[in-house]
Structures are given as C-alpha cells and as structure tokens.
Design a protein around this nucleic acid. Structure first.
Length: 466
RNA sequence: GACCCCAUCGUCUAGUGGUUAGGACACCGCCCUCUCAAGGCGGGAACGGGGGUUCAAGUCCCCCUGGGGUCGCCA
C-alpha cells in the first residue's frame, strides 16, 4: 500500500510549489490505489495561524485534490510527541542540554570566525554533573558521531552525507517543552503509515536528521522523493515578490484549476510529447521516479496558453458556473450557450471572458471615436439606415443563420460586400470595431435590441454631425 | 565559507552510446477572414567549457565554470 501525504505549515497561503508536491503525492497514491493524507504542521504556535491553515484547505478544495481521512493537526498531538521524547530519554538516546541561547550564539559566532561549519559541540552529551540553576534545558538527540548516512532518493538517486560535516546533536524539544520539526515529521509520517515522502528539494539536507530519528525510534524509513524547486522566470528562487505564488491568486486572475494542475505537472515531469493531461491521464501516467532532477523556471505564457486551451474545450455549463465568480451570471440568458461559444476562443482568462460578455450583453454607452470616424464616414450611415429598415420589415429574427441570410440579401440588392457594412454594425452592437462574428453577435443580442442599438448609433452619429 | 543537488533552443521538455538532436510555449512569415481571436502551413532557435573512455558521446567518467539548496530552541 502506497501512502503519501501533503504536510504544509500554515505560515501563509498555499504556494504553487507546495501545490505541485501535493499534486504529485496525490497522483502517486491514486495510481497505486493507496492513500493520500493531509497534515498541518503547526508546532510553532507563535508563527502559525488558524486562518492560514484554513486558507490552505480552501485552496486545496478549489483545485479539487481530495485527501483521505481527517486532517491531522500537529498542534493537537503534543502528548504523543512528548511520550516519544521521554522514550528516547529513557533509552539514553537523547539528553538534556543546559546551554543557553546566548552561549549557543557565541559558539556559532566563534565557529563562523574560524570559518568552520556551525555545530553544537556536544558538551552536555555525557553530562552527569549538577545542572546550572535557572536554565530550562532543551532535549537533544544523540546523533551518530561519524560514518555516513545514505539513502536512495526517488528523483536524485543515491545521496550520501558525511555525518561529520552534516550532523550534530540537534534539538528535538525546545526549552518550553514543544517538539521541533525534524522530530515530529518523522513521528507523524511513521505513525500515519506514510511509505513515500514526496516533498521539496529544500528538505534534502533535513533528510539525514530525520533518518537519525527514524532509527532511534525503530521506525521504518520511508522512500523519499525530493522534487526540485520552481524558479521564477529569471531563474531565481520563486519568492513572494514574484507575485502570483499564491494558488488562490490564480483563481482571482481567471485561471481554471485544470490549467494550474496541468501546468504544474509538466514542470519537471513529462510523458513523451504530451502537453495536455486530464486528471485521469495524470493518474494513469505519473511516476515520481520520472521527475526531472533539475529546477525549472515557470513561464507565464505557457500557463496562459493552457488556460486558453481549457477555456476552448470546457463545457458551456462549467464555464457559466465559473464565470459567476467574476460577477457574471448568464445562467438565465436564452442565448447563453451561443454567448459562450462565440467568446471561448477569444478569452485567455475567465476574468477577460466576463468582460467580453458584458461588452455584448450590455448596450454600448460610448462609441470608439476612432472606429466611428473610420467606418461611418461617406454614405455608411445611410446604408446602415437602410439596413435598419430592412430588418424592421422582417418582423423578427432569431438565429445567426437568419441574420446572415437577410444581411447577405440586403447587400446583394445594393451590390455591396459584407466588408462595407460589417464594421458599422459591429460599432452599433458593441461600440467598437472588435467582436466575434457579427451574425453570432446579432443573434445573441436579439432582434429588438439589435434594432435599438442600430437606432442608437444612428441618432448618436446624427447628433454629432450637427 | 562548509556540505548537498543540478546543467539540451529564451522557457518547459524528448533523448537511456550510432538521431538531419524531436515536441510545446513564446517570436517571425504566409494562408484563411466581416474586425479581433482561433485555426492551418512554414521559419529562426539548444547539447556551458575542457579533458578522458569508446570504432562511435547530448548520452559514461573526471575537472572547471555557472545556477540552486541547506547550515535555527522556523517549518
């Protein structure tokens, strides 16, 4: 049974790097019929907030990655951690260290000055004397003194660390009694039965520490997959300054969850030349052993391209639903499907999509001056008036086909081309010279509103001429 | 600074010793066309450098260079 997990610490929002490792973990568990667990790493009471935890859960919900079981909060498991600290203490595998923070800082400064690597010197490792008064001790684990710690990483391959230049007796419980990260992750991963840990590259050098804990506690070491970081377009580490590292920011910008997932899975992973993956395909093909070793920069153009792809191919129902978030509810519009289909190939984001819809369904309040000057000069206005008259005589019209037929007949009678009137009609309908095919637009706007919009333009033009 | 990781078009990548080094995004050109898109066709564009190994190296080994990460009583 493959059990994976996503374990963010709630210090802020869910960022796209985190979402990517979550996606990978999710897919690998699903592909193997295993479990994908969710844990909130909130042991640092001072820095974590309930809101941040909720924001992460919300973002998770938006992209639609369902986890198995209840969410585990580390802040509710301190008793468990405490018992394991005690276990190590009793077994002589951990000890109390009475070194104060100031002393530690001084030691580090000294080591730094000597250009040595900073490390705890183990002064209380075998201490048996009387502890100094007034110092609350921290608990340190007895790490091996020499040798090598090696493991096979699913993406990096064999990784070796020399104990001498990597490890020291690191702290597993602070002086206030709360346990630290490297200690609790291993306990929880072991207790939750996690078999494969898929996480960011930045944890690679934590791994030997965690292996020390696994071994001290007699737990089975899981398989690790350290996935490379995501870089910003300049090739530097992605930071908050780069903007749009918050998953929910993508929702606000009008990206679909499908887009983001598809984008993220192709960053550092591939399946031949395939670019588009449904969630089902991702589940069928994804294997953490195929993840690239090198970091990858994300590029906005590709993200945007993916979004246009999904907007083009998604069902009208879904699009109508998604558009509501942008204040555009067209679920009651009689031509809603036509509206969606007329615009889906032009909108790059849902945000844009909403604006484009508005430009069609709401009568233009102003007209693009440049377009009016360019396309309504000469006898264009009288042609438009004649066209209006022709439409009035029709009594009613409904489909794009009907509008097209009448318009073509009108033009033919006068020896005109569609070119000669299309832009004038477009300006009447939407106020500018850009829109989808005019016949589709006419059908969407509807017969009576079409007449009115043409009339409006004519009146406007007449009034400005005089 | 120490340790670890990494290195194919501008970007994401294919490539597991023999390829005209393939695809995608972006860019440029042409076609289509009622505008804008979309779409179709075409184009330019890469193995960081140096040594080996081998009949043969983008692929294996070493060095250099460059980039990234970690060195907390943060996670």
């Amino acid at each position: 049974m493959v059990i994976t997990r996503f374990a963010p610490s709630p210090t802020g929002y869910l960022h796209i790097g985190g979402l990517r490792t979550a996606l990978y973990s999710f897919l690998w568990a699903r592909r193997n019929g295993g479990k994908f667990l969710f844990r909130i790493e909130d042991t640092d009471l001072a820095r974590n907030s309930k809101e941040a935890a909720e924001a992460i859960v919300e973002a998770f919900k938006w992209v639609g990655l369902a986890h198995d079981g209840e969410i585990v909060y580390q802040s509710e498991r301190f008793d468990i951690y405490k018992s394991y600290v005690q276990k190590l203490l009793d077994a002589g595998k951990a000890y109390q260290c009475y070194m104060s923070k100031d002393e530690l800082d001084a030691l580090r400064a000294e080591q730094m000055a000597k250009k040595e690597r900073t490390r705890y010197d183990g002064r209380y490792r075998d201490f048996t004397g009387t502890p100094p008064a007034g110092v609350e001790p921290v608990i340190r684990i007895k790490a091996p003194l020499d040798g090598q710690i090696s493991f096979i990483d699913g993406v990096k391959g064999e990784v070796n660390f020399n104990v001498k230049d990597m490890l020291d007796d690191f702290i597993i419980a602070r002086s206030d009694g709360t346990p630290t990260y490297n200690f609790v992750v291993t306990i929880d991963d072991a207790l939750m039965g996690v078999t494969e840990v898929i996480r960011g590259d930045d944890h690679l050098s934590n791994t030997p520490k965690q292996i020390v804990v696994y071994e001290a506690l007699g737990f089975k070491v899981p398989r690790f997959h350290h996935v490379p970081m995501i870089l910003n377009p300049e090739g530097k580490k992605l930071s908050k300054r780069d903007g749009a590292t918050d998953v929910m920011e993508y929702k606000k910008e009008g990206y679909l969850p499908e887009t983001l997932l598809n984008f993220l899975i192709r960053l550092g992973w591939s399946h031949g030349d395939q670019e588009i993956f449904s969630l089902e395909e991702m589940q069928a093909f994804f294997d953490p052993n195929d993840i690239n070793k090198s970091a990858s920069a994300y590029n906005k153009e590709k993200l945007l391209w993916l979004n246009t792809h999904y907007i083009k191919t998604l069902s009208a129902e879904r699009l109508i639903e998604e558009l509501k978030f942008f204040g555009m509810d067209i679920s009651a519009h009689i031509k809603k499907v036509e509206l969606i289909d007329a615009l889906r190939e032009r909108a790059k984001t849902l945000k844009e999509f909403a604006v484009m819809i508005e430009q069609i369904i709401v009568q233009p309040k102003t007209y693009d001056e440049g377009a009016v000057a360019k396309f309504l000069g000469g006898d264009a206005l009288s042609v438009l008036e004649a066209y209006h008259k022709t439409l009035v005589q029709k009594g009613t019209m409904n489909t794009a086909g009907e509008f097209e037929e009448s318009t073509k007949a009108f033009l033919e009678e006068r020896g005109l081309k569609l070119k000669d009137i299309a832009q004038a009609i477009r300006i009447a309908m939407v106020g500018s010279s850009v829109s989808p095919s005019i016949f589709e637009v006419l059908a969407i706007i509807g017969y009576s509103d079409v007449l009115q919009r043409i009339q409006n333009l004519i009146s406007y033009k007449r009034s400005t001429c005089e």
